[in-house]
Write a protein that binds this DNA or RNA. Structure first.
Length: 200
DNA sequence: CATGGGATTGACT
DNA sequence: GTCAATCCCATGC
């Protein structure tokens, strides 16, 4: 896999969120193609960077191309790629993957669901699910995505970018009107609710 | 120092 | 559809 160059991330976060659809995320023997993302920017209140630089958000304001990992609802680790030049707080949340490699390891990490073995579609179809499946945790916060344990890149022979559709973000209470969620059109590996939106 | 909310998930009705 | 689990951190006293 070829790592994405730092300047890939050093762009408007909406561009990066779209461009990451079809790219590959990889960690510790597991990998998947990104099929769903969301953009967050300091200018809007749903973004953690909205409140300014704190101990929690300093990664978001740091250089582009690093990981921003934080705990959600006390339970789940959510993985983001920091974007835009240093000093601007922005990131892309990776929400779902199509599993490509290490599926058995993913299944082991995800555990049994109600005594049942997880299907391929359930392995990475959510931001908390994919970090669990890949073994990504808070300790990866701040890592360089080109050189660290968690890598983001382009797979060899990666097919042409899928058609991307845009809609409202999930699970937030502020700025719900912004259509900053992006999905690979027609993919069965995206999270719920599945996108009913028209092509963008 | 105490408190409350959150970019979620899975189990249960 | 509803609800609890569980922890980091921002905020306020």
């Amino acid at each position: 896999m070829k790592a994405l160059a730092p300047d890939f991330y050093e762009r408007p976060v909406l561009e990066v969120a779209r461009a990451l659809i079809g790219c590959m995320l990889e960690h510790d023997g597991c990998a998947g193609v990104i099929v769903e993302t969301e953009a967050y920017h300091e200018s809007e209140p749903a973004c953690h960077a909205f409140i300014g630089i704190t101990a929690r958000t300093q990664t978001l304001f740091g250089p582009a191309g690093r990981a921003y990992v934080y705990r959600s609802y006390g339970i789940h680790a959510l993985f983001n790629a920091v974007c835009e030049p240093a000093g601007i707080g922005a990131a892309v949340l990776i929400r779902a993957l199509e599993p490509i490699a290490g599926l058995e390891l993913m299944r082991r990490r995800r555990g049994r669901l109600g005594g049942r073995v997880a299907s391929d579609y359930e392995l990475c179809s959510g931001p908390g699910k994919l970090t669990q499946a890949l073994g990504i945790s808070l300790q990866h916060n701040g890592e360089d995505l080109g050189r660290g344990a968690v890598r983001l890149g382009v797979a060899p022979g990666q097919p042409a970018a899928a058609r991307v559709i845009a809609g409202p973000r999930i699970g937030i209470t502020h700025a719900v009107e912004l259509p900053w969620r992006f999905c690979a059109a027609g993919s069965r590996y995206v999270s719920r609710p599945r996108p009913p939106w028209p092509p963008a």
